[in-house]
């Protein structure tokens, strides 16, 4: 089936008007050289932020080639698996001052890793309330969410859905330090923080 699909895509580009790679390279060297010079001139100035930001996104997240600059906003497992933030919470995850947090474990996380994260959270004075969502619970919720797309549900097995800890912070201002500590733990894949009112479900996700 993949081979057939590949053929479909190949056919879709058969009207390619063509372009000379040598010319592309020359133009890129000219324009890229301009970018280099501009960047050197502006080194340190915030004006280069556009270029630097792109490179940070490119290098920071996975290819790890840009040592400076902040990593780009990570695309989250949560964004695809569970696009619904609780309606009363901030729709976009926040970097700081989150009141509610979901910690997603990698699908490869082991039992000891899960227990270690759970134990750390239970003993953490920054955590006001804590819940755990198992793979089965995640699967139920996922099925309900995508009930109108049975094909899609069919294509996903429970083992692909992440387990997660959901929690409410005692003090949102502690969120940054909190993330740093837990992001380093084995088995943790993604941490998503949101700003929620007290009435929201714990963790800020439905």
């Amino acid at each position: 089936m993949d081979a057939d699909l590949r053929q479909h895509f190949d056919r879709a580009v058969t009207d390619d008007p063509g372009a000379d790679p040598g010319e592309i390279a020359l133009a890129a060297i000219a324009e890229g050289g301009r970018i280099r010079r501009r960047r050197r001139q502006l080194a340190g100035a915030g004006v280069a932020a556009g270029v630097v930001a792109l490179l940070a996104v490119v290098g920071g997240v996975s290819l790890r080639s840009e040592p400076t600059g902040p990593a780009g906003p990570p695309m989250t497992v949560a964004a695809a698996m569970m696009p619904v933030a609780a309606p009363s919470c901030s729709e976009k995850p926040v970097e700081s001052d989150a009141s509610d947090v979901a910690i997603f474990l990698g699908t490869e996380a082991t039992d000891p890793q899960r227990s270690a994260v759970g134990a750390a959270l239970r003993g953490d004075p920054r955590v006001a309330e804590l819940q755990f969502e198992s793979r089965e619970q995640a699967w139920e919720r996922f099925r309900a969410l995508w009930a109108d797309s049975p094909d899609f549900v069919e294509a996903v097995s429970p083992s692909q859905l992440p387990e997660s800890y959901r929690l409410r912070m005692v003090d949102p201002s502690q969120y940054r330090g909190f993330v740093t500590a837990y992001a380093a733990m084995d088995g943790v894949e993604q941490i998503v923080g949101r700003v929620c009112p007290v009435s929201a479900p714990i963790g800020g996700v439905q």
Binding site: G72, V77, A80, M81, A155, V156, Q160, Q190
Partner: peptide
């Protein structure tokens, strides 16, 4: 810059 399961889900 996403996980493998995200790729599989989006593909499906």
């Amino acid at each position: 810059g996403v996980s493998g399961s995200v790729v599989k889900m989006r593909t499906a």
